[in-house]
Design a protein around this nucleic acid. Structure first.
Lengths: 231, 231
DNA sequence: AACAACCATATTGTCGACAATTTTTTGTTG
DNA sequence: CAACAAAAAATTGTCGACAATATGGTTGTT
């Protein structure tokens, strides 16, 4: 069963209580999934009518979207959804490499034995799924997300967790959808996941970080290659 | 001339135009400098009276403080200034190590020759100051901040710049003031800065990242040592 | 026809009041 | 006196209206 993504954005792991929360979640979903196009302007009067809420609570929701860098605001002008450029995507992966690499090192140091066991079990489940689906994207996508999330949480470093899960990953998902990235290296990625878990289980932080960085860098280079092929 | 810190938090590098901006800047200053104590509750009615503004615009300012992780909000309960724990400080330095290390690698790849020249000049100025002040804290502190900022900006990676300058560094400053950290290794740090700039000038990203990580790790271990001595 | 200044319109920023929720106080009971 | 329940006060969330600023079109001049 895949992790519920929204829980990771909510520090207290509680359901959205206020209406601004709910509107935020809906807008988050719509932006990430491209229902609201990247780069498009956000009209406060229009949206507040559509959601049947006041502008105040809409602005509250917009502020949270701004926290995840999904929208940008200029004073006295308004908000726009961020637009997805290739440069932005590569910058994002560079940042992931740094943060998740370190998170992986910390995970090797700080994960409990139970957490490690749980990850190994997850990987076994994925391997069965992979036999069935033979590298087809959807489950592998979720599996990939699950894997990375567990490593990040395993770091037990609240700073890293907040930055990666709270803001970066929404952008990552948005980019994945915008560029229609279907992880053409599912099998290879799965093997890399195995190696990383092994390094964590061995409590080898140095190796764990190195492998995670290579894993993300490989994904980035894969994207770069595809992009340059297209042109 | 030291960098104007606030400009780095403002993406457009423009002065605060709206009143919420100004209140945000004042509150930022007060929190970072401990005028408002860490862990203390923030009363919206009280603050809005003190600043003679409405609660709406105060809440706007609070939202920006939340973006920098300087305050935390719970629904229907209110906001608190984050409190400074030793674990939090160490987590922050771990995160810095990852992000600034990568920023340094990117800086070695992406800085212009002019930017590198400017950094070398800055270091020369610092060295003169150091001869005069003989390792006394204040100027060295600002110099340290300047150095790190220039490297980060030199990465030319907007993601890294936003995360580090836009949010992490306010927390770093707050911690420095709360724990009264006076950089007892000024001379050593200056030498490390020199080595890092040399690696950047040589366009050796690998070494540049390694050195920056060691530089920050050394600072972290220095803190850990002090803390454990005290107990 | 091209450009500048101006005006009308629309959008964002700010305000004060009301509703919903939490926290504190008070009162009752064992 | 302690413990629990209920009411009161205070705080946060939400709303609609007004003020300040930007946008787009119009008009007038060269």
């Amino acid at each position: 069963m895949p992790l519920e993504l929204n829980t990771l954005n909510n520090p207290t792991h509680l359901a959205a209580v206020t209406t601004a929360d709910k509107v935020y979640e809906q807008l988050l979903h719509q932006i990430v999934n491209g229902v609201i196009a990247p780069g498009s302007k956000i009209s406060e009067p229009e949206l507040s009518k559509k959601f049947e809420i006041s502008r105040s609570t809409l602005r509250e929701a917009l502020n949270r979207l701004e926290k995840c860098h999904l929208i940008e605001r200029k004073a006295n002008v308004g908000s726009r959804v961020v637009d997805c450029s290739i440069e932005g995507l590569l910058e994002l992966y560079i940042t992931r490499e740094a943060l998740e690499g370190m998170a992986c090192r910390q995970a090797a140091m700080n994960m409990t034995d139970e957490e490690i066991l749980s990850m190994k079990q997850m990987l076994k489940d994925h391997s069965n799924q992979q036999d069935l689906k033979d590298g087809i994207s959807y489950y592998q996508e979720e599996g990939d997300v699950d894997f990375h999330y567990k490593v990040i949480l395993g770091s037990h470093n609240q700073q890293l967790i907040n930055i990666i899960c709270g803001q970066l990953y929404h952008l990552v998902r948005m980019y994945r959808i915008q560029f229609g990235m279907k992880s053409s290296r599912a099998k290879r990625a799965f093997e890399e996941h195995s190696q990383i878990i092994q390094a964590i289980a061995d409590r080898d932080g140095e190796l764990a970080e190195l492998l995670m960085r290579r894993h993300i860098a490989a994904s980035r280079k894969n994207i770069e290659r595809k992009i340059t092929e297209q042109t």
